[in-house]
Design a binder for these strands. Structure first.
Lengths: 326, 326
DNA sequence: CCACTGAGTGAATACGTATTCATACGAGGG
DNA sequence: CCCTCGTATGAATACGTATTCACTCAGTGG
């Protein structure tokens, strides 16, 4: 491995000068600057990141925590987050939650040398806050809260549930099915809460079903087998909405004539023509990840201080073909 | 920051002993072992990764290069790769290619301190090999080659094209449309080549259209506007196949009666009921990413030696509703 | 001509850990 | 009882870089 000492020797200067060329080029005389740069070129020298971060205490790394990327919502988030970080010159260390042992991913919080931590969509995140606090690394939750103490940027999930309730009321349903996903996901809890509260007065019957995408089929089938089956389905997540569409197609239902379906999240997929899933989501012009990232980098630069507090964005309705016949 | 020296002081031992407790616990006496472990607990000590990797010359990092994660194929790849790496105790550094300046992501190859590099689906990858070589870090291409010199594990793209040709011949098409994607993607070139070679004898008319997913609409529309429009469409990628389905739906075509559609890649999405896109892909029991990762870690452990050479896996046909009426 | 300034540079040091080398000590064989 | 050997530990060193401190030297003002 070629070190800054090698470069110094070749250029006939001290190692300190090489370091200055890299970090404070304005502090070194033009002729020596050129000499050193030439030596760097010639030796194809690259500074050792470990040594650099050891002394400067800056790693240039952002740690990203999120759920499985085969879930399009998660992938979309990760993509935006990484692109944002890369653009600002950070390297991204990605940690993906294993659904079988969701807590284990948080160990990485304590081992990482990242300068900032971005918490994305995760199944379980409650305990993460403890880890984050003891790590002392600036962090932010994006898209869903980490409980009371998490600094969050994201959709107001309670409002989303409420909005879903208000919107589907216009469809005059008799029975509404709530397709809920993992009940330990705080985000989904909040959505359901908002939904139920807003539905309370209407007196409409509500049926709820929860579970992972993998094992939701059976309970959902049971729900549809009831005599008084839902004529509107609200999915806590677009993915569950898509699952519902898939199921309904298979079982011979017409959407939205027999059963209307509304998702939450307004993922990219939902807007595609072949799906055209109605959904509740953030306004189109709102880039949540960028917002969160700006806050996070501000926290890093201010040494963990400032820019705290959460931002809850009000969602809007995207009406598409699964709730409306044209 | 609490260091191993602090732990040593508290435990009444030397720093060297603390290090031994972490790395060679069998070399330290039971009573001292306990003392040190207790001190570690008490101080909530975590070894500094930078210092550790500076001296051990092992970072425990795998660098992952791939295309945008909003493309489901890419996301699926990234997910598998990360899960594999995490399971083996590696931390994953992810680098996503910006479509606007696809080459720029390769700079990271020279700056990274990763122990191994996994090259996934990328738009352009030809020049990457040069970077990889000068970096001296073990690397592997997964899913598509990096030219002659890349070590690759993946689907035999040429064979996939050929298989696509053989399969659609059974549909007895008059005109076949090839929906090709970015022409600089080597993977897609190979698929097309295999396809054309196998079609040559049949004398069937072939129409080809290329471009990014964003700007494929116009040329595709033009293709469908021709008098002799395709009755079978082969998409170089499932994503393009899905685009085609979306388009055909919009324009009033019946699939597969009016136009049949075949994708390549057999992505997860394609198997969903609402799409049911026929596709060419790897056998179900073949986990390409795991295979690639095994090879990569072998190369890392053998210090860059051994386990070279490529593995081209033969694809199979997944026949679904976009090519077959039941 | 001298004191002073400021720019440019090198020597030395620090960062936190792994490892080598040396040392102390207890056990076992003669 | 002495020598040897093996085990357990500490002191010292190395990794590659950033930064502090001290030094030189040319230029300036008195």
């Amino acid at each position: 491995m070629v070190s800054s000492v090698d470069v110094a020797k070749l250029a006939g200067v001290s190692q300190a000068t090489v370091s200055r060329v890299l970090n404070n080029p304005e502090k070194v005389n033009a002729p020596t600057l050129e000499k050193v740069k030439a030596a760097i070129q010639q030796l194809n020298y690259r500074p050792n990141a470990a040594a650099r971060s050891l002394i400067s205490r800056k790693s240039g790394i952002i740690a990203l925590f999120c759920g499985q990327l085969d879930e399009p919502d998660n992938a979309e988030f990760a993509n935006k987050a990484v692109m944002n970080a890369q653009q600002k010159g950070y390297t991204v260390e990605i940690h993906i939650q294993n659904p079988d042992k969701p807590e284990s991913v948080f160990d990485a919080i304590l081992d990482t040398q990242a300068e900032g931590i971005m918490m994305g969509p995760l199944i379980i995140k409650g305990t993460a806050v403890e880890y984050l606090k003891t790590s002392g690394i600036p962090y932010i939750f994006c898209g869903s809260g980490g409980g009371q103490e998490g600094i969050t940027v994201g959709m107001d999930n309670h409002a989303a549930g409420k909005l879903a309730a208000e919107y589907i009321s216009s469809l005059e349903p008799e029975t509404v099915g709530w397709l809920g996903g993992d009940p330990s996901d705080l985000r989904l809890q909040e959505r359901y809460q908002g939904f139920v509260e807003a539905m309370k007065e209407s007196g409409v019957r509500i049926v709820k079903v929860t579970g992972d995408l993998e094992d939701i089929e059976l309970p959902f089938t049971a729900m549809m087998a009831q005599k008084q089956r839902p004529d509107v389905i609200v999915a806590a997540t677009d993915s569950f909405g898509i699952f519902a569409l898939d199921f309904l197609y298979d079982y011979g239902y017409a959407v939205p004539e027999d059963v209307a379906v509304l998702g939450i999240g307004n993922s990219r997929q939902s807007a595609m023509n072949y799906l055209s899933l109605s959904s509740i989501g953030l306004p189109d012009d709102m880039d949540m990840v960028a917002e969160a990232f700006d806050r996070l980098s501000a926290m890093i630069e201010n040494n963990g201080q400032g820019s705290r507090g959460s931002a809850d964005v009000n969602p809007v309705v995207y009406e598409r073909r699964t709730t409306k016949t044209y």
